[in-house]
């Protein structure tokens, strides 16, 4: 059982990695979600800006997350824009997942009956208030399963950042295994941690589903 006691000795490395992953994840998805909602609001009208944003969103859907992180971390310094692995990683997570959140919400917006919007307009809602009070809540409730999926994808994408030298959970496992030569145990620990986080996320989403179910929404 010596390998497992080594793991216990290395607990601080795992703990720091876990905190880094959780921090990256929560900060990035909150920002990405808000940014995604803003994007969808901007897409409500048909301006040049909207068209450009739509193009950008579609572009993100065809790119691997890591290539965006590469662009920010390795590419931009050539233009004199140098940032830490943390800043680059966080920024990449936000931009990338904001595009996916926006795409999910917009897909639902396109098939939403116009009646709700007209009813709100008839009551004198301003466009912003209409979006925040009437449109967005419905979109979020209806797309809950897809948004939940995206959260888990975002969690897993944080692991890519180990490749641009960010010290998160997977990097922690890698450093423990290279120091103590116990790859199996080290990785089993972090895989179980990832698994537990995603189970917690799923449970939280199930609770959130009750909110929608009480209002008679079906799952999409």
């Amino acid at each position: 059982m010596t390998e497992w006691s080594i793991l216990w000795d290395a607990r601080e490395i795992f703990f720091n990695g876990l905190i880094a992953t959780l921090g990256l994840f929560s900060l990035s998805i909150i920002c990405a979600f808000v940014l995604g909602c803003v994007l969808v609001y901007q897409l409500e009208d048909d301006s040049v800006l909207s068209k450009a944003l739509r193009l950008l969103i579609n572009l993100m859907r065809t790119l691997p997350f890591l290539i965006l992180a590469y662009l920010l971390y390795y590419g931009l310094p050539q233009l004199g824009l140098r940032m830490s692995a943390w800043t680059a990683g966080l920024l990449a997570l936000i931009v990338y997942h904001a595009a996916y959140f926006a795409e999910i919400l917009r897909g639902c917006r396109l098939i939403m009956p116009e009646g709700y919007v007209e009813a709100a307009k008839a009551h004198g809602f301003t466009p912003l208030r209409l979006y925040l009070r009437i449109v967005l809540p419905q979109l979020v409730i209806k797309t809950r399963p897809l948004l939940g999926n995206q959260l888990i994808i975002a969690l897993k994408d944080t692991a890519f950042l180990t490749i641009i030298t960010l010290q998160e959970l997977t990097a922690a496992a890698n450093s423990v295994q290279s120091t103590y030569f116990i790859p199996t145990q080290a990785f089993v620990v972090v895989i179980v941690l990832y698994w537990l986080i995603s189970i917690c996320l799923e449970l939280a989403l199930k609770r959130a589903a009750r909110f929608g179910a009480k209002r008679g929404f079906d799952y999409v």
Partner: peptide, 17 residues
């Protein structure tokens, strides 16, 4: 497990262990 594990982590795990 497979759905929750990042591919990066899983590839490393397989290759090293």
């Amino acid at each position: 497990l497979a759905r929750a594990t990042p591919l990066v982590t899983f590839v490393l795990f397989l290759f090293l262990s």
